[in-house]
Simulated scan of single mutants.
Amino acid sequence: MNIIIYTLVILTLFYFILKFFSSISPKKISKSLRLLIIIGSILLAILFAIGGKYLLSLPLTLVSLGLMKLKGLSLFQLLSLYRLIQTLRNSGRYNFNQSVTPNNSAMSVEEAYKILNLDMNKKVSKEEVNKAYQKIQKKIHPDISPETARLSSIVNEAKEIVLRNIE
Rank of each mutant, 00 (worst) to 15 (best):
N104F: 15
S91L: 01
L116S: 14
S91F: 00
A106K: 15
V124T: 06
Q86F: 10
V109S: 06
A112K: 02
N117G: 05
D119E: 10
T101G: 01
A106I: 13
N90A: 06
K126W: 09
T87R: 14
K114C: 08
G92S: 05
S99I: 09
N97R: 13
M107H: 01
Q98L: 12
G72V: 04
F76H: 09
E110T: 15
P102M: 10
S105H: 09
Y113C: 10
F76Q: 13
D119G: 02
N103Y: 11
L118R: 05
L118D: 07
T101H: 02
S105V: 13
S80M: 03
T101N: 00
A112D: 00
F76A: 14
S105D: 13
Y82G: 06
T101V: 03
S99W: 08
P102F: 12
L81S: 08
D119Q: 08
K114L: 14
F96P: 14
M120C: 08
V100T: 12
V124W: 02
E110H: 10
V109E: 04
Y113M: 12
E110A: 15
G72K: 04
Q98W: 07
M120A: 12
V100D: 10
Y113V: 09
A106V: 15
L78Q: 02
G72D: 01
N103P: 07
M120H: 13
N90K: 12
F76W: 10
E127G: 03
L116G: 11
V100W: 13
K131Y: 13
E127R: 08
L81W: 05
T101K: 01
L84R: 01
P102R: 10
Q86W: 08
L88T: 13
L79H: 09
K126Y: 08
V124K: 07
S74E: 04
K122Y: 00
L81T: 06
Y113E: 09
K122M: 10
N103R: 10
S99A: 09
N97C: 11
L70W: 01
K126D: 08
L75W: 04
F96M: 15
L78V: 03
Q77T: 08
Q86Y: 11
G92Y: 03
S74N: 07
S108M: 05
K69W: 02
D119P: 00
